[in-house]
Design a protein around this nucleic acid. Structure first.
Lengths: 237, 237
DNA sequence: GGCGAACGGATTGTATACAATTATACGGGA
DNA sequence: TCCCGTATAATTGTATACAATCCGTTCGCC
């Protein structure tokens, strides 16, 4: 659990630690550092032109974000995501996105609703054109708007954490374009329920949206990508 | 989001950083350091006989646990919990504890179920004797067993985070002894549903258990303790 | 040849020194 | 008296030096 008030202030990009943190997070999510790869303090420090101190502090933060795993006196390793992790996350997200949509129905602002409509409009355009990158970006943004609109710092942060955590997976699987249209449709239905003030429906639709997203992942070979590497849980000392 | 595999290995109590981290966390939860109190690196370091380095690293971890808030170039402050935070947490927990109970119904081991029965038996005993401390301890343990039993590292960790986050509040409010018995009853019902293999019922009961716990808190003056200190969100630079 | 202990390199853990930033106190001027 | 700029102290940010630990290798012994 993290600082729900203003975490990004604390990781400000003007401090070396903050810059290292954001750079490493991005590189891990981008896949530059692969699963189980070891991150060495001096190497990272030299690459970014800083000393070990800010690198170490960034490591501590990355660990609690779940992106790396620090083994005392040994090193820092990029964490792997098992197929079960993904399943669990989507189970949790299904409930929480539903809650989020329900709360957002009461709390959403005019501006947020407008941005949501614009988002859906744009997504339809890019879907037709086959612009996958923009689609992914808009999908992320749609959920971010929803998180902001629920007016709960805690829920917003929790969902953002999970969302970010599965970005690595989504980048590899969401490029199946049949899902793109379905996802857009579901977004629009959620938006319309919110706009109509039907909190119950919005919750139900958001629930199902996550279930559908996960089912699609499984269909498109999640298992093959993140095989059942059961060696994830070996607690060897 | 944190390392779901073995975070406690990384914060091993044999490293200075780990010891500082655990000590500070305990002191914050115990109330030794009060809300909005500033934690100074040198002071903590001298008190524990270590240099600033491990203290700083412990701070970074505490921040992502949500216990302190670090303002760059200024300091680290113990985070306050607003009444709304507590409400949000219980809303989230209601859903997730329900999910946890549902999963646990399928996955719980014989040993875990036995410990749960023993827990409930002991709680009834201590409730009759009026042993508040033991009651609180058993209540914590009951939920921990449930978290372990759901067989999801991610869900387990998420729930533990939220649970720990509200410990500060619970210590001040759960000592109303009428709730003790009701809580025990609810625990037993959840356990029996799990034992009977009725996942739907277990989920519903766990949902309601959280709602009841929160309602009781409100009744017993949550507002008065954690007043609407709206000054929590001032993002002054 | 196999096995174990000791050595050495590499890496992390901790302490300390120095730089940058912020807060506070003081003093001068209007 | 009030305001404001400057100096100074306190605190955090970063770099570096040193200690402890881990891991592979080599050497010696059986």
């Amino acid at each position: 659990m993290t600082n729900y008030d203003n975490k990004y202030d604390a990781n400000d990009k003007y401090s070396l630690r903050g810059r290292v943190f954001q750079k490493l997070r991005e590189d891990i999510l981008n896949g530059k550092y692969k699963e189980h790869e070891e991150l060495k303090e001096v190497a990272i420090g030299e690459e970014l032109g800083v000393s070990r101190t800010p690198v170490r502090e960034a490591f501590r933060q990355l660990e609690l974000e779940g992106l790396i795993r620090i083994v005392p006196n040994k090193g820092a390793y990029v964490t792997g995501i098992t197929a079960k992790d993904v399943k669990d996350i989507y189970m949790i997200r299904s409930l929480l996105e539903g809650l989020c949509a329900r709360l957002a129905t009461e709390k959403i602002s005019k501006e947020q609703l407008e941005e949501m409509e614009e988002n859906i409009y744009l997504a339809a355009f890019h879907e037709e054109k086959g612009h996958m990158d923009q689609m992914a970006e808009l999908d992320n943004r749609f959920h971010d708007i929803l998180y902001e609109a629920c007016d709960s710092k805690l829920l917003e942060h929790t969902l953002r954490d999970f969302h970010r955590y599965v970005l690595r997976v989504r980048q590899k699987t969401l490029s199946t374009n049949t899902r793109g249209r379905a996802s857009n449709d579901e977004h629009r239905q959620i938006m319309e329920a919110i706009k109509a003030g039907d909190a119950e429906l919005a919750e139900k639709l958001a629930n199902q949206h996550m279930i559908n997203a996960y089912d699609n992942m499984v269909k498109n070979g999640l298992k093959e990508i993140y095989g059942e590497n059961a060696d994830e849980n070996n607690n060897e000392k």
